[in-house]
Design a binder for these strands. Sequence first.
DNA 1: TATATTTACTTTCAATTTGAAAGTAATTTA
DNA 2: TAAATTACTTTCAAATTGAAAGTAAATATA
Lengths: 150, 150
Amino acid sequence: METIKNLFRCSCPVTSAVDIVGDRWTLVIIKLMLIQHCHTFKDISESEEGIAPNILSSRLKTMLSLDLITKTHPPNNKKVNIYHLTEKGLSISPIVYDLMAWSDTYLRDEHTAMTSFDQQSISLLPREEAIDYIQEHYKASVSSVLSDDY
Amino acid sequence: METIKNLFRCSCPVTSAVDIVGDRWTLVIIKLMLIQHCHTFKDISESEEGIAPNILSSRLKTMLSLDLITKTHPPNNKKVNIYHLTEKGLSISPIVYDLMAWSDTYLRDEHTAMTSFDQQSISLLPREEAIDYIQEHYKASVSSVLSDDY
DNA sequence: TATATTTACTTTCAATTTGAAAGTAATTTA
DNA sequence: TAAATTACTTTCAAATTGAAAGTAAATATA
C-alpha cells in the first residue's frame, strides 16, 4: 500500500514555495518559457542551459501535475506539443524578474560572461511595468503559436 | 590535478541566480535568518523545517564561500557562532517576500495548514515598505545579538 | 572545582535524485 | 515512400540528500 507523502515540509509559506520551485530546473524552465518564448520540448532542449531530455520530461510532468503549465497541440498538428504557463505559473514572473535583477547587481563581478536583460528596454522600465511587459509579450507569443499554421 | 568546475551553467542572469539559490535549503535558511531571526546553528536546527545537521553544516559552508552570510562570535562567548546575512544575502529579501506572497495566493487551496505572514502588519504594508520593514528589523536583531551579554 | 549540559558540528551509510548516452515511436516533410 | 523531425523513454553511473549516531570544545551548574 502506497501513501502519497506530503509535498510540503511545514506550514511556512516561503518554505512551501521552495517545495514547489526550489530545485535546479523549475525556475529555469519557467524563465525559458516566459522570456525566451520556448514553447516546445525541442525549444527547451536546445537552450543554452543544456537540460537532458529525461530530466526535462520528468520536470514537465511534475509542473503539469502542479498546475504551473498546461500542454496542448497547435491546430492541425498532432506531433508538436505546446507547453504554456498557467496563471499560477505566470505569476512566478516577479520572482524571475527579481532573480535577474539580483544577479545583475551581485553576480557580475564573479561571472563576467553573464549577459544583461534580454531586451534592453526592460532594464529601463520600473519593476512593475517591466513585469507587465514581459507577461503581455509572453501571452501574445503563446497566442501566436496556438493560432493556425504554426 | 583538480579543476574547479564552473559554478555557472550559462550566461543567463536568471539561471545564474538559480545556480546560487536553486536548491531545497538555501532560500529556506535565508528566510529563517531574515524573518524568524535564527542566528545560530541551533536556532536553524530547531526550526519547523527540520534540517539535518550534516546538511545544514554543508549549506552554511557553501553560503559562507558565496558571501551570502558571515560567521562571528558574540562578545565574551567562544562557543556560540552567530551567522548573519551579508548585503548580498540580505538583498535576497525581495525574492523571499515574493515567494511568500505567491504561496499566499496560489498554494492556500492545496495546503490548508499553511500559515500567513509572520507579523500581520507585513501583509498590510505595500511591498517595498514591507521589505524595508523586514530588513530593518533583521538588522536590529543582529545588532542586539552581537551586543554584549547574549 | 568537578560534573553536567549545551553548542556546533562530523562521520557513516542507505536512499533518492541527477544526468549522460543511446534508443524508440509517432508524425510530418520532401 | 523515404527521410527527417519531434517527443519522448530506457539504462546505468555519479552525485546529492538525509537519517542516525557520535565527538569535541565551551559554558553552566552543583
